[in-house]
Design a protein around this nucleic acid. Structure first.
Lengths: 96, 96
DNA sequence: CCTTTCTATGAATAATTGTTCATATATTCA
DNA sequence: TGAATATATGAACAATTATTCATAGAAAGG
């Protein structure tokens, strides 16, 4: 695995995505079940706009996917690999 | 594993530490061999002060340890667990 | 249609974080 | 002891990132 400037920069971006409480809250909530934007907003007590902006970033990094059902847009964790990353996070931390 | 506000906040802090190119560069450099502040500064072409400030954060999170030898302070990765986290990072990313 | 509801988004603002600059402390060596 | 070298650190400044605010678009229901 190369550890040049380029890939270290990529890796730091990757970590940065997880390094925000709003995004982590969204991710761990979606780990339980898929949810639409408004529900996330109410549940986490964060404005709809803020949620939407952060979901955009999570989408950009392919951490969540979405499906439109009527007026609602349901978001969910992309796949098992992302779920694993999320579960590993707590393990790593608790070992430090 | 509890996923309350408190622990999600802790976890995001943990990720945040890795979410900076300077700190990652330092960490991956120290993964090769222990090094003193000045050498890191020269090698990475980052001011001594910036390196020192970032090392302080890495120390705070127990990711590095240091040993004073004369005027120099040699830094190294704390332990195998931290090394594992660093190596896992690239794997996770490459699978996304 | 018109209104309501849900979501997305650009721009402005607020908050956070990183770097630089100036300087202090400690150690070595002449 | 005095000068040089290595590191740390507080404060100011710069840069980045998140949130809010205002608003637009899309779908559903009356």
């Amino acid at each position: 695995m190369k550890k040049d400037k380029e890939s270290i920069s990529k890796l730091s971006e990757f970590y940065k995505v997880f390094g925000d409480t709003t995004r982590l809250h969204i991710l761990y909530t979606l780990l339980q079940k898929e949810m639409c934007v408004g529900d996330l907003s109410k549940l986490l007590n964060i404005s709809q706009s803020a949620i939407s902006h952060q979901l955009k970033i999570l989408r950009l990094y392919s951490l969540v996917r979405y499906e439109k059902k009527g007026q609602c847009v349901f978001y969910s964790i992309t796949d098992e690999h992302v779920k694993k990353i999320l579960e590993d996070g707590f393990l790593h931390m608790s070992e430090l």
